[in-house]
């Protein structure tokens, strides 16, 4: 207080200055380490880059890189479409599974702590280098293959198919569930953080709400739809965005691998930048649309 008066500035002004001071590392970092390269990458995508003795030269080529990425390159549009389809298919599966797992882990049972520790393990083990090596690994393919044929958990593929047929589900849904079950391992391993977020959300719901509901005679099913889901809806938004971002920046994503191979494989920095930008803009669009739709339905208690 004394210092403030000595320099003749108001408390309000002083608080502002401190705010700028404390956030200064990020402000500097954002401008120099993020915004600057971010703008450069736009310029790169519109140029041809040539390494010279004294550095590098940029030769402007207009939209040529974009044209080549989208209309000349045979593989890029296919990768783009496949990635979009995979994302559309996996995000709901990951969310459903995370929800299910979080509710499971929120119940009281023996070994709950151990189960939580294991469920969260993939977050620790998701190293780029490990994922990359595993995807090309012989033993992983061999042992995973053996297990998948024998069982998905405790049910074999054939049995699952029969069970679902018996339920008389619509065919589209049937195929979706079976495909999901076949990718179960991947879904589970990509759900660590989401489970954690939803689990913490579940624990923050006041128990009194469920007590009231029980007195009123509500069933567990009704509780889920009327209490749990609405109160968790803000977290669902967080999880959806996290899942999408996690998916499209993952180094095992085939499209990311493809773009990386262009950037550092010598085929041209410019075209790889153009590919990244098209990809980024599509994902940004997806995020905006999905975020917009969900945030309209989000329910806030206060």
């Amino acid at each position: 207080m004394k210092g403030a008066r000595r320099f003749g500035i108001s408390l309000r002004r002083r608080e502002e200055l401190l705010g700028y001071l404390f956030t200064l590392p990020f402000t500097l970092g954002f401008i120099l380490m993020f915004l600057y390269p971010f703008i450069q990458s736009i310029i790169f995508s519109l140029s041809r880059l040539e390494i010279t003795a004294a550095g590098y030269d940029l030769i402007p080529v207009g939209l040529e890189n974009y044209h080549r990425a989208l209309f000349v390159n045979a593989e890029y549009p296919r990768h783009l479409l496949e990635t979009a389809v995979t994302m559309g298919r996996d995000v709901p599966l990951i969310l459903t599974f995370s929800f299910f797992a979080a509710i499971l882990l929120n119940q009281k049972f023996k070994g709950r702590l151990a189960a939580r520790v294991i469920f969260f393990l993939p977050v620790i083990l998701g190293a780029d280098i490990i994922l990359k090596m595993e995807s090309a690994d012989y033993m992983t393919a061999l042992l995973d293959g053996t297990v998948d044929q024998q069982m998905l958990g405790f049910v074999s593929r054939g049995e699952l198919r029969e069970l679902l047929m018996y339920l008389k589900l619509p065919e589209v849904l049937l195929i979706y569930i079976i495909q999901g079950a076949e990718r179960l391992a991947e879904i589970i391993r990509n759900s660590g953080i989401q489970i954690l977020i939803i689990l913490a959300g579940l624990q923050s719901i006041p128990p009194s709400l469920y007590e009231v509901a029980e007195i009123e005679g509500a069933t567990g099913w009704e509780n889920f739809w009327k209490i749990t889901l609405p109160l968790l809806s803000p977290l669902i938004l967080t999880c959806v965005i996290y899942t999408i971002v996690d998916f499209f920046t993952s180094p095992t994503n085939p499209l990311v691998e493809f773009i990386d191979s262009y950037a550092f494989g010598g085929a041209g920095y410019g075209i790889s930048m153009a590919m990244s930008w098209v990809y980024f803009l599509i994902v940004a669009l997806v995020l905006a649309v999905v975020g917009g739709i969900i945030s309209r339905r989000v329910f806030y208690m206060d």
Binding site: F30, F34, Y36, P37, F38, Q40, S41, F44, I241, V245, F248, T249, V256, I259, D260, A263, Y269, S272, M273, S276, W277, Y279, F280, V283, A284, L287
Partner: peptide, 12 residues
Amino acid sequence: TLLVPPQIIVLP
């Protein structure tokens, strides 16, 4: 900064 994939800025 969290939403932008590192692939975009890593080359510059």
